[in-house]
Design a protein around this nucleic acid. Structure first.
Lengths: 134, 134
DNA sequence: CTTGATTCTGTAGCGGCTACAGATGCCATA
DNA sequence: TATGGCATCTGTAGCCGCTACAGAATCAAG
C-alpha cells in the first residue's frame, strides 16, 4: 500500500482533516513523515490508530482516556484489567448522564403537556408559569 | 426585604458567585445597582430571575434559549406557543442524546462483559481487541 | 494563463463556566 | 492600634474538543 495524504486519511476514517492535525498537535497521534518535505504521509497503521480513536470517541471516552487506552493496547502487563476499569468508569458516567437526561425528559414532557399550542400570552402559559415559580 | 450582596444571592439560588457575574457580563441578567458604589446589590426579583435561569439550565436549555424564554416570560403576545416550541425542540435534542447514550451504554456493556477482570496483557483483552478491529 | 483543489501554518472562536491574581475595604480580636 | 480573615471587586486565562478562518504554496486540468 502506498502512503497517502491527510485528505485520504480523513476520507478513510471519517475524521476531519483539522481534527487529525489537532490530534497530532496534542500528541494523540505521532507526527507523520512528510512526502517531499511538505505533505503529511500516512499509511494503514495510521488508519488503524485513528479508527481506534474514533471508536473510543463514539463510546464517549475523553482524549486523555483514549491516550491511556492506546498505551494499554500497545500492551504492558495488566492491560486488560486497567482497560476494563476505564470502561466501567465510563459506563458509570454514561449511566449518570442517562439519569439526568431522563429526568429532564420527564420534566419537559410534563411542562409541555399542559402547554397546548395556543397563542396565549406569558401569564397564561403553564410552562413559563411553572418555571417562574420558586 | 433588604437588598443583599452577591454572596447572599449565590446562597439563595445555588448559583456560584462567578457564574452570576458571568451572567451579568453576557447580559443574561441586568447590571444591579451598587451599594455604596462598590457592592452589587440584589433583591427578591433577582432571586426569581436567577431561579428561572437555573431551572431552565437544569432542563438543558442553552443560555441563548434562556434569553429567549426570559423575553417570552416578560410576555409579548404568542409567548406560550413560542415557549412550547422551544421546549419541544429541547425535548427532541434530549431524545437524540438519550439515543446516543443508550447506544454507548449497550456497546460498553457488551465490551466489558467479555472482559473479565483478569490481568491479561492487551493481546488477550477482548475489549481492546474489538476496538482495534476495523 | 487562469481556475480550482489540496495542503500548509498559525491563530482565534465556540459554550458555560472555573480559577486564579491582586486590590480594596470592613469587622473582630489581641 | 495592629492584625488577621472574610467578602467583594476587576480582569484575564484556562478547560474540552474541536471548528473556522486567513493567507500562502503547489499542482493539475481546461
Amino acid at each position: 500500500m502506498k502512503p497517502f495524504r491527510i485528505g485520504a486519511l480523513s476520507r478513510r476514517t471519517g475524521v476531519h482533516i483539522e481534527t487529525i492535525r489537532y490530534y497530532e498537535r496534542i500528541g494523540l497521534i505521532p507526527e507523520p513523515p512528510r512526502a517531499g518535505g511538505r505533505f503529511r504521509s500516512y499509511d494503514d497503521g495510521d488508519v488503524a490508530r485513528l479508527g481506534f480513536i474514533r471508536r473510543c470517541r463514539e463510546l464517549g471516552f475523553s482524549l486523555d482516556e483514549i491516550r491511556d487506552l492506546q498505551a494499554l493496547a500497545q500492551g504492558g502487563a495488566h492491560s486488560c484489567a486497567e482497560a476494563a476499569r476505564t470502561a466501567r468508569r465510563q459506563l458509570a458516567a454514561i449511566n449518570g448522564k442517562l439519569k439526568d437526561l431522563r429526568r429532564m425528559q420527564k420534566t419537559l414532557q410534563a411542562l409541555t403537556r399542559n402547554c397546548v399550542n395556543e397563542n396565549e400570552p406569558a401569564p397564561a402559559c403553564p410552562m413559563l408559569e411553572t418555571l417562574m415559580q420558586v
